[in-house]
Structures are given as structure tokens and as C-alpha cells.
Amino acid sequence: MLDYDGDTHLYLQIAEILRRRVAGLSSGHPVPSEADIQGEFGVARTTARRAIHVLREAGLIYTVQGEGTFVGAPDAAPRQPRKIPLYQQIALDIADQIKAGQFQPRRPIPGETALLQQYEVARETIRRAMALLREQGWIYTVAQRGSYVSPKESWPQD
């Protein structure tokens, strides 16, 4: 339980709770994402990020960009590497939804904020996925309007 009126910053209180949780976990075990911490404790993303930072600085956890945060040190923690980077997996998922007709040509796809919530990843991961989809021809972006599904004739050939 967080003490909102106490003299200890919320991020330090959350870091201490997380420190106790990860103490019993083996190296390489995933740690809750910033979005998970934000939802569980009802705090701002910055507060969750600062709590993670405290544990990272203490050497209890480490982060791999695009994959997540894990218990231990990167060189000592055995973890299963992803077959493909997370942003590529997200792009593949969205492309599959386009092919399945869930998103129609010349119609908008969910915005960055909606995708952040759906996939619970960092903003940069979503941006890389969107860039890949644009590069492949699945989507196009209209300034100040958003991203849209490309016409079917622009889709990549399987």
C-alpha cells in the first residue's frame, strides 16, 4: 500500500515493493512493464519509469530495448531471445489484421496511444512498427490526420 501523504516519494515506495518481489525471482525472469506498474499503482508513467530506474541503478534488473525488463544482470541472466524483435512482431500482427479485413483500405488504423495500450510497449517500439508497415507498403500516414491502410494494390506480395 502506498503512502501518498508520507515523506517518501511514490517512486521510491514502488521501487521498494518491486525490490521485494524480484528478490524471489530467478535471473532472466520478466519484470512488470511501466504500463503494468502504472496500472497497478495508479501512478503516472514517469513515476513508474523512475521506480524501474532505481532498481536498474541498483543492479537488480536490466532492460533490453524492444523486449522488456528482466531480473538480474544482462550477462548473467539466461533468457530466451525472441525469434524476431518485438516491433517486427507488432508490425506482423497489424499486417495480419489488415489482410484479414479488420482494417479496411483507406481507413484509419488505431493511433499510437491505442497501440501503446494494446501492446503495452514503449512508444519507440510502436513507432518502429509503424515505420516498418509504411516501408512495406501496408500503411501510409497523412500529416495531422493519422495512419491509414494502403490501397490493396500497394500491399506487399506474399
Rank of each mutant, 00 (worst) to 15 (best):
G66Y: 00
L115P: 03
H53D: 12
Q38L: 10
Y87T: 01
T8P: 07
E34M: 12
K152A: 13
D7M: 12
R45C: 11
G146N: 00
H9D: 14
S150K: 08
S33F: 06
L116Y: 00
V43Y: 02
P151L: 12
D93W: 01
T47S: 07
L55A: 06
Y148F: 15
G146I: 00
Q102N: 01
I126N: 01
D93T: 08
P74E: 09
A77W: 06
G137V: 11
G68D: 07
L55M: 06
I84L: 12
T47C: 09
M1L: 06
K99M: 08
V22L: 15
Y148R: 02
Q97H: 12
G68M: 04
A15D: 01
D75P: 00
Q13N: 13
A73N: 14
I17M: 11
I61E: 06
A100S: 14
A44L: 09
G39L: 12
Q38T: 11
T63C: 10
L133A: 02
P32E: 09
D158F: 00
P85C: 05
P30N: 03
S154H: 05
T113I: 09
I37A: 01
I84Y: 10
F70S: 07
Q117T: 10
L18E: 11
A114W: 00
E135H: 13
E40W: 04
L18T: 04
T141P: 00
L92H: 11
R21E: 15
L25H: 08
Q89K: 13
E67R: 14
R123G: 09
Q88I: 10
P74C: 03
R56Q: 15
S150F: 10
S26L: 12
R50G: 02
G146W: 01
L92R: 14
Q102E: 02
F70K: 03
E112F: 02
T46V: 14
G66R: 01
L86G: 04
S33L: 10
Y4L: 12
Y62S: 02
E153D: 15
I126M: 02
Q65K: 13
D7N: 14
D3Q: 06
A122E: 15
L86M: 05
P105M: 06
Q157D: 13
A77D: 07
D5Y: 05
K152V: 12
R45L: 15
H9E: 15
E120T: 13
P156K: 08
G39P: 07
P151Y: 11
Y87L: 00
V71E: 08
D7A: 14
T113Y: 09
G72W: 08
G111M: 11
V121P: 03
Y62E: 00
D93F: 02
T69M: 04
F41N: 01
